[in-house]
Write a protein that binds this DNA or RNA. Structure first.
Lengths: 213, 213
DNA sequence: TAGATAATTGACCGTCGGTCGAATAAGTAG
DNA sequence: CTACTTATTCGACCGACGGTCAATTATCTA
C-alpha cells in the first residue's frame, strides 16, 4: 500500500469517526447529554480501541469535529462572496452566514446544535473556535472597509475579536434568555454598537435585526 | 439542640467545605488542574461521605463557592458606593471594583483565580455568574443614570448584559491574548463602545484604561 | 440512663476515558 | 504461493472519579 492510499484510507476512517461523533453531538435528546467514547465507537460500528488508533483522546475528537464544521462553514462563506461588490457587502454576507447558521432551526448543523446543546465543554470550545476562525476574516474585511471608507477603526483586529465575541455571547442560550423579543432588542443594540464603534453609516447594520430574506 | 444552633452548626460545616474547595480552586498548580471530591474532603479534614451530607453533588459545591465569592464581592461594592455623589460615579466604582479584581495579581481572590484557571467548567460558570449577578446592578445604575441625564439607552437591561458580557470576555485569558498592549487597546475600544452606545460624555469611560490609583 | 436523632465515615459501586496485548488484515519480498 | 513484516482492529481490563450506603459515633431529649 503506497503512502497516498494509506492517507486516503486513514482520512476515510477518521471521517467515519468524526461523522459518528458529530451525529451524536447534534442529536439533542435530553437524557443523553454526555457523549462517551463507547457511544462514538458503537455508533461508528467500530471497536473502542480503533478510536484511539486514530485519535489521542476524546477531547481531540471533539475538537476535530468542531474544527471541521467551522472550516466547512467558512469555506461556504468564501464561496458566497464572489458576487459581493463592496467590502461592506462582504461584511454583511459574513454576518448573514453566521446568523443564518445560528438562528435557523437547522439541527443538521453542528454549529447551531452546539449553541443549543447543554454540554458546557462543547459550548465553550465552540465559542473559542468561532472567535479564532471568524475574527481574522472579519479583521481583514475591516481593514479592507477602511480603505474604501465604509468603516473606520483604529484597531481592526481587536475590533473584530470583540465583535465576534459579542455575537457569540449574544446568541448564547446558556447566558441569556433567547425569546424573540429579547434577541431582537439585543441585535438592535448590537447593530447600534457596531455602527458607532466602526463609524459606519447610520443604519448600515440594521440588516442584523431585519428578517433574513 | 434548638433549630438555630443546628443551622449555625451546619452553616459552619458548609463553610469549612466551601473554604476547602475555594482554597483548592485558587491554588493554580499546573499539574493538579482538576479538583476531586476526595481532595476537597481531605483538604477539609473530613470524610468524603460528610461532603454528601451537606451537598447534593460536586457541582453544587463549585456553584456555591462561586456564588459565595460573587456575593461577597458585590457586598463589598455596595459598601463603597456610599460616598459616590452621582450615578456615574457609582458606575465608575462598579467597573473599578470589577477591574481591580480582574487585573490585580491577587490570587487570594477566587474571581481572579477563576479567570486565570485552566478549568473550562469553572471559567464558564464564573462567566454566567458574573453576568447574572453584576448585570442587574449595572442595569439599575443605567436606569438611574438615564434620569439624571448622564447616559441614554433604550433597553437598560440588555445594555447591561452586553456590557458585562463584553468585559468578561475581554479579560478572558482563554479567549484572547492578555498582553498589556492588547488589553489596553481592547479596553480603549470598550470605553469607546460604552461611550457611544450609552451616549455618555466623550471620554467619560476613559478611566477604564487609565491606571488604577 | 436509655432511646432517638443527627452527623460521620470509608469501603464499595458504576461509569468512563484510556491502555494493552492478542488477533487479524494487508502488504511485501523471494 | 509462502513467509514475514507491518498496519489495523478489538474488547477485556485498568485506574480514577463522582456518588452511595450501612454501620458507627456524637449529640440531644425525656
Amino acid at each position: 500500500m503506497n503512502e497516498k492510499n494509506i492517507n486516503e484510507k486513514n482520512k476515510n476512517k477518521i471521517d467515519i469517526i468524526l461523522n459518528s461523533a458529530e451525529e451524536l453531538m447534534c442529536s439533542m435528546e435530553e437524557p443523553n447529554r454526555d457523549i462517551t467514547v463507547d457511544m462514538i465507537a458503537k455508533n461508528a460500528g467500530i471497536g473502542k480501541g480503533s478510536i484511539y488508533y486514530y485519535f489521542e483522546s476524546k477531547d481531540e475528537i471533539i475538537d476535530a469535529v468542531i474544527e471541521r464544521s467551522y472550516s466547512a462553514a467558512i469555506q461556504e462563506y468564501f464561496s458566497t462572496i464572489n458576487n459581493c461588490e463592496t467590502t461592506f457587502d462582504k461584511i454583511k454576507q459574513l454576518f448573514r452566514s453566521i446568523l443564518k447558521e445560528e438562528l435557523l432551526d437547522n439541527s443538521k448543523n453542528i454549529i447551531l446544535s452546539l449553541h443549543v446543546h447543554e454540554d458546557i465543554m462543547l459550548h465553550y470550545k465552540m465559542m473559542m473556535t468561532s472567535i479564532r476562525t471568524i475574527s481574522p476574516i472579519l479583521s481583514q474585511l475591516l481593514i479592507e472597509g477602511q480603505k474604501d471608507g465604509s468603516i473606520h477603526t483604529d484597531s481592526p483586529q481587536e475590533s473584530a475579536e470583540m465583535i465576534v465575541a459579542m455575537l457569540t455571547f449574544l446568541l448564547n442560550k446558556n447566558f441569556f434568555s433567547t425569546d424573540t423579543e429579547s434577541i431582537y432588542r439585543k441585535l438592535k443594540l448590537y447593530a447600534r454598537v457596531l455602527e458607532t464603534s466602526l463609524q459606519a453609516e447610520p443604519g448600515s447594520f440594521d440588516f442584523l435585526f431585519m428578517p433574513i430574506e
